[in-house]
């Protein structure tokens, strides 16, 4: 009796599940686990952004004079560098999918190079600001500036490990798991879109 009822329950249910997914050829790139992580991280960062906005709104225009001390050039350069790195990484996933592993590996290395440049520029920018006497406790804007950029850079540093995993997959023929390469790419692009929002919040909004 139980198997029958199970079968009766399952048949329409699973058909419905298939149709609600919507379709042939649609699939989640990489491990869904990584997407779950990305969404959770997005929520944590959102909470930081919202706290920042609330403090900023409460302070009226007090954040603006501090914001004037930021170098827009650094912000824009870093955004362009990260966008470039994401472009390389997306290209790498595509190359790997087509079996062009040499190109894919080179693209991962270029991604890492952009990442290094990003971190280098960030260190330069920080030392620049510290040289001007602007530190974590100078004012609330700079507290948020150092906090948000530092937590983001931590994610970039972790991203190098992720890129190394992708490079390891691409290098040796017996591994070459497309799923792992895509999972790594998903992590790297998360760094990119989080930075895009941080850039707008710290450097350009008024």
């Amino acid at each position: 009796m139980r198997p029958m009822s199970n079968a009766a329950m399952n048949a329409p249910g699973s058909a419905e599940a298939n149709s609600s997914l919507g379709n042939a050829g649609l699939r989640i790139p990489g491990q869904p686990d990584m997407w779950a992580f990305v969404m959770f991280e997005a929520l944590i960062f959102s909470s930081y952004f919202i706290v920042y906005m609330i403090r900023r709104a409460m302070a009226g225009d007090h954040f603006l004079p501090a914001q004037e001390h930021l170098s827009q050039g650094f912000g824009v350069a870093n955004t362009l560098i990260l966008l470039l790195s994401s472009w390389f990484m997306a290209g790498s996933v595509r190359s790997a999918r087509e079996g062009k592993y040499d190109i894919a590996l080179r693209q991962v290395l270029l991604t890492a190079a952009c990442g290094l440049l990003f971190v280098g520029l960030k260190l330069l920018e920080w030392s620049d600001k510290i040289g001007e006497g602007l530190t974590l406790s100078t004012n609330e804007f700079f507290s948020f500036y150092y906090f948000l950029t530092a937590i983001h850079v931590l994610h970039v540093l972790f991203g190098f490990v992720v890129l190394a995993v992708a490079a390891r997959e691409l290098r040796s023929p017996p591994r070459r798991s497309q799923e792992i390469v895509e999972t790594c790419a998903t992590y790297w692009h998360m760094i990119d879109f989080l930075w895009v929002i941080i850039f707008a919040l710290l450097y350009v909004m008024r």
Partner: peptide, 14 residues
């Protein structure tokens, strides 16, 4: 970035 680079446009609608 999410739709194109992360290929979400080819992922399930959810």
């Amino acid at each position: 970035i999410i739709q194109e680079f992360m290929e979400a446009r080819r992922a399930p609608r959810l």
